[in-house]
């Protein structure tokens, strides 16, 4: 099972908590998939409201580890301040660091990401950087203290799967000791299994489960898929070839023509 900053988790599927039809469906999805880590966030709250506390109580009752995010932050300052607030509220040094660079694709601003990661690691955070599959950026993130890489599969919520399989393979090969979590863009359990078959250590997704017709059943399907993909990777898959290769022995075939 993947280990992040010295903590081994029990399920390579990490699940987002947003967009579910109801809190009870969210809870059922977490329970059925047996995920160990869920992502959470922070937003403005009105005076007198207990919405935030109620949500936080629900998550605590489920006994899962939280990975707070800095979603929707477009600058280093916003992301760092959000991380600091998240650490206080959620009592964890883990932070899923998002510094967004484009509103249409929600792709990371990798320059800001590296800068924010440097600041946060120096301040004791354990950063999970939402990045691209770019090797040089990944190397910079590791240099500033990140011990996990979180490349996107595809734009957030797009359900496109793995847009750049080569890039993920390359990342895996170059940083074979660093936990890699494919985050974002996953639409189907087969996408998640594919990421795991490539040797990635975990998959983080939200929309594909939350917006499914039956979120809890889909969460279970994703959990099964990452498990199957991991097992396949560890079982040393065969190489792809351009030509057919008969599996049934040719020798001894009867001459019947």
């Amino acid at each position: 099972m993947p280990t992040f900053y010295g903590t081994e988790i029990n399920n390579p599927l990490l699940l987002g908590t947003a967009q579910y039809p109801s809190p009870s469906v969210l809870a059922e999805s977490i329970k059925l998939s047996k995920v160990d880590v869920v992502t959470v966030s922070l937003r403005r709250e009105s005076g007198g409201s207990n919405a935030g506390q109620d949500f936080w109580n629900l998550i605590k009752e489920l006994g899962v580890r939280v990975l707070p995010n800095t979603a929707s932050c477009y600058s280093v300052k916003e992301a760092v301040t959000t991380a600091q607030m998240a650490r206080e509220v959620f009592a964890t040094n883990w932070i899923k660091l998002e510094v967004i660079g484009n509103a249409d694709t929600l792709q990371p601003d990798v320059y800001g990401l590296v800068e924010a990661a440097r600041e946060l690691t120096q301040d004791g955070f354990q950063v999970f950087p939402y990045t691209t599959e770019d090797l040089v950026v990944a190397d910079k993130l590791l240099q500033v203290g990140c011990e996990v890489l979180m490349p996107w599969g595809a734009p957030i919520g797009s359900a496109r799967g793995l847009n750049n399989e080569y890039g993920l393979r390359s990342l895996r090969a170059h940083f074979n000791e660093v936990p890699i979590v494919v985050d974002a863009g996953i639409g189907l359990p087969s996408h998640a299994a594919h990421a795991m078959e490539l040797g990635c250590d975990a998959v983080l997704l939200n929309t594909a489960v939350a917006k499914a017709g039956d979120p809890a059943a889909m969460a279970k399907a994703f959990s099964d898929a990452v498990s199957a993909g991991r097992q396949a990777f560890l079982s040393d898959p065969i190489e792809m070839s351009d030509m057919a290769c008969p599996s049934t022995p040719v020798i001894g075939k009867a001459f019947l023509s």
Partner: peptide, 10 residues
């Protein structure tokens, strides 16, 4: 002043 509280996140 910004005051924030937990919310669902992806």
């Amino acid at each position: 002043i910004e005051v924030v509280a937990p919310i669902e996140g992806g």
